[in-house]
């Protein structure tokens, strides 16, 4: 096995552990932190079903963002939907056999890499060009977009310009996933692939310690996930109940 192969094997194990453990800890923290008061942004649904629907619209359509800023919504939504589609297409590199649906969308979703890159470029432009958004941006906010752009562009280039040995890459990940190191093939060493995989690992590592926590966070936001029924049902946190004794 080449040094590169061993290094990337170690990197991806480490990144996966950091991602999973980091996210799990964060989600547990959100879960166990009480929401002592009813604070849904009203008008809010008055049933649990209604809340599920509100959350669905928020996560799938970015409803509130749409109300707030049409341009950000356009670029942001295109970026995210393309990202999820591209991620879904990536399943083919990890599955054996590949699901029919994944196989089927493969050729179609291939082009969504461009949508993702365009969305990201739009977000980057807005971040720099709008004085208000520039004011609130820290270096990490630009770097996050550049990181995703790096992933998107290097990925698109390997798909459309400088083809890599996809069979070998897939085989590498299958071996990692099954902990089967004996027959592990070498990872192709063309620079684009190395850059793509390196940036993805970096993204996985910083996910649980960055603003990417918005992905789990949205589900825990009390202003969005609470049912509007304070008069009907008494809502009280454990620490607040102690004040009553």
């Amino acid at each position: 096995m080449s040094f590169l192969t061993v290094a990337f094997a170690a990197l991806f194990y480490a990144a996966t552990i950091l991602l999973v453990v980091g996210l799990a800890r964060r989600i547990y923290l959100y879960w166990k932190t009480p929401a002592p008061l009813k604070i849904p942004t009203t008008p809010a649904p008055i049933t649990t079903g209604g809340v599920v629907l509100r959350m669905f619209r928020e996560v799938v359509f970015f409803e509130s963002l749409f109300k707030g800023s049409k341009w950000t919504w356009l670029f942001g939504w295109v970026f995210h939907m393309a990202l999820f589609a591209v991620l879904f297409r990536h399943l083919r590199y990890f599955q054996e056999p590949v699901w029919g649906l994944v196989e089927w969308v493969g050729p179609l979703f291939k082009y969504l890499a461009f949508a993702m890159v365009i969305g990201l470029l739009g977000l980057l432009a807005r971040r720099y060009l709008v004085d208000r958004v520039r004011y609130i941006s820290a270096p990490s906010d630009y770097l996050m977009l550049l990181l995703l752009l790096g992933i998107g562009i290097s990925g698109a280039l390997t798909t459309f310009v400088a083809h890599t040995d996809v069979v070998a890459v897939k085989s590498f990940f299958r071996h990692l996933m099954t902990f089967n190191f004996g027959t592990m093939p070498n990872l192709p060493s063309d620079p684009l692939m190395v850059i793509h995989l390196g940036l993805v690992a970096l993204l996985m590592i910083i996910f649980p310690i960055s603003k990417l926590l918005h992905a789990p966070g949205v589900f825990f936001s009390p202003t969005r996930n609470q049912v509007d029924n304070p008069r009907e049902k008494r809502h009280i946190a454990d620490w607040a109940r102690k004040l009553e004794q």
């Binding site: 964060r26 509130s64 963002l65 707030g68 800023s69 950000t72 942001g76 807005r126 971040r127 709008v130 208000r132 958004v133 609130i136 941006s137 820290a138 906010d141 603003k211 926590l213 918005h214 966070g217 949205v218 936001s221």
Partner: peptide, 10 residues
Amino acid sequence: DACVKCGSCT
């Protein structure tokens, strides 16, 4: 934790 500095509220 969650703010992405999208600017929608600005």
